Amino acid sequence: MLQFINQLLHKSIQSISPCLLCGIDQQKKHSLCNDCWAQLPWYKQYIERHQQKILCAHRYDFPIDRIIQVYKYEQQLHYQNLLAQSLLNLSLPKIQAIVPMPISNDRLKERGYNQMLIIAKIMARQLNIPVWQPIIREAQHSQKGLSRIERLENIEYQFKIIKTEKRKFKKILIIDDVVTTGSSIHALTHALENLGCQQIYNACIAAAL
């Protein structure tokens, strides 16, 4: 009942709230007006990184690049629905669970939240599937100046399986905000394969093309 009331209140607020970008027209389900939504730098295609396909919602161009930055680093959490709906607007495969890209405890303390976990929860509610977090990420180090092989090895060691995790899913979707080299998704995929996942799909909000 409480969830139903919250959804009703959310829809009522949306019906009188202006678009998050232009501030003029009425926002819709995705928190933008229809014109601003249509003018986002949509890509909606697969990119390939490390022999893995990643379904990408947007090019990493304005205004998505700025929206992701302020959402991620400046606690502008009112953009969470826009970013979640960008992923939900893709032709996603049928999956059993969503795996948000983990962040280290240091990053969590620094930001106060895992930006992709928030988005994963919105998506999970709409898709009626669970959010699954069977992997933790240890200290994240800078990748600058590293070769491709060194970059992959550095990230591989960051992802650790939570041994107490009892749930198992075979078909899962990894989600991330921005993909550049794809090293993080590659390493997380490898860890999930060690857990027995057989069909691992990947999606990102934006990619540097």
Score class of each variant (00 low, 15 high):
K163N: 09
T181F: 00
N128T: 15
H58Y: 10
K170G: 04
I98T: 03
Q26T: 13
K94Q: 14
I103S: 05
Y201I: 08
P18G: 06
E138W: 13
Q27A: 05
Y157T: 14
R66Q: 13
F169G: 01
A207S: 15
A57W: 00
I162G: 09
Y43V: 02
R148C: 06
L192V: 07
Q158W: 04
K163P: 06
L87Y: 05
R137D: 02
F4H: 14
N34V: 11
R111Q: 02
L88I: 08
K11I: 15
E138R: 14
Q115T: 03
Q80H: 07
C19Y: 01
A38L: 11
Q198M: 14
A84G: 06
P41G: 02
L21C: 03
E48R: 12
L77W: 06
H141C: 09
M116V: 06
R66I: 09
L77V: 10
P130M: 08
L209F: 13
F169A: 01
Y79P: 00
Q14C: 13
L87I: 10
I122K: 07
A191D: 00
T181R: 00
K144N: 11
Q45A: 10
R111L: 03
S12N: 10
G145T: 02
Q39I: 06
N194D: 12
Q26D: 07
H50F: 14
R167M: 09
A97V: 08
M116G: 01
L21I: 05
L8K: 10
G182R: 01
A208Y: 13
Q96V: 07
K171C: 07
Q85Y: 07
I185F: 07
R49W: 00
Y73S: 02
Q198I: 14
N89D: 15
T180G: 03
H141A: 10
A187V: 00
F159L: 04
F4I: 15
S15N: 12
C33K: 04
C19K: 00
Q69E: 12
Y79H: 00
A57G: 03
A203Q: 04
L127G: 07
R107K: 12
M101S: 06
S15A: 15
Y46K: 11
